[in-house]
């Protein structure tokens, strides 16, 4: 309940944040603090310094850029869930944000923090993978973009360097998309979360992508399942047949007291079916 001591610096700009991160030993960024502070309260995390990026101007905007949405790293889950631009351009993303934690958590937690933290039970990663999002980050060497598929490396581990700051996320819009989650009854994190995108051409599925979090240490895509659905109608039978391939996406399912890896894999199949059906319905 009582974090150990640390030094605190409030960065006025991304450049300053990068500079502080590079120069201070064992420093960590804090944005909403809703992953970091809980860990610090249990003293599971004991950084020597925090660099607060929460007040850096210009990092919380949400805007449409062509068919894509550009979401500032500091956009809270509530801001994403409530954004008309997101609800219109990419309903699944609003749905994902609204499924995170609770009202209070959504008022503080940020998309940048969630992605950087890369919790196996976090909700955003599946959506990022399914949508093919790109993360923009600034480090000592300047700005770069990282495809979601390269971003999530392992449990609580991303492709970010220690002194890189996520500034925004570019998310291609997708009307035919859905995110469904099996919520942990205690923690509220995703036991399994499935994000699905379906693009229709005529009566047939022309494109499909599936992202899944909760089952393994990092979020994964279910490519075999997605491929199996393409090239024919999004019928219940074809969706079920496609979902049967979901297991191929998991190397080592994780388990906890509530749900074993085996059961998570089972749930992933069920939620994939449901998410695909909903996405296809939305694709029209």
């Amino acid at each position: 309940m009582f974090p150990s001591q640390f030094d605190y610096h409030r960065a006025a700009s991304v450049a300053e944040a990068v500079e502080l991160l590079s120069s201070l030993p064992d420093a960590k960024l804090v944005a909403g603090g809703h992953s970091l502070i809980p860990a610090m309260k249990l003293r599971a995390a004991q950084p020597a310094a925090l660099v607060d990026i929460g007040r850096i101007p210009g990092l919380s905007g949400i805007s449409a850029d062509g068919d894509s949405l550009v979401i500032g790293a500091l956009a809270t889950h509530a801001a994403v869930a409530d954004s008309a631009a997101v609800q219109g351009g990419c309903p699944m993303l609003a749905e994902t944000a609204a499924a995170i934690g609770d009202i209070q958590v959504r008022n503080r937690g940020t998309i940048g923090g969630s992605l950087a933290h890369a919790d196996p039970g976090a909700d955003y990663p599946a959506a990022m993978l399914a949508l093919g999002a790109e993360v923009t980050a600034v480090g000592a060497g300047g700005e770069r973009t990282i495809a979601a598929s390269d971003f999530f490396v392992d449990i609580l581990t991303t492709a970010l360097a220690d002194n890189e700051v996520i500034t925004s996320v570019r998310v291609p819009g997708a009307a035919g998309s859905a995110y469904l989650k099996h919520r942990h009854p205690a923690s509220s994190y995703a036991v399994v979360g499935v994000a699905a995108c379906v693009g229709m051409d005529g009566g047939n599925v022309a494109s499909c992508s599936i992202g899944i979090n909760g089952v393994t240490g990092k979020a994964v895509t279910a490519d075999a399942a997605a491929a199996a659905l393409c090239g024919g109608p999004a019928s219940a039978d074809r969706i079920a047949a496609a979902a049967a391939y979901v297991g191929e996406a998991f190397d080592e399912p994780l388990g906890d007291l509530y749900a074993s890896g085996e059961f998570r894999a089972h749930l992933a199949g069920v939620y994939t079916k449901r998410a695909l059906a909903l996405a296809a319905e939305r694709a029209g």
Partner: peptide, 16 residues
């Protein structure tokens, strides 16, 4: 309520 929004005050640093 922090700036009118419900937050869990156990998960906010006073400096924030």
């Amino acid at each position: 309520l922090m700036d009118g929004k419900a937050v869990k005050s156990c998960t906010v640093l006073a400096v924030q």
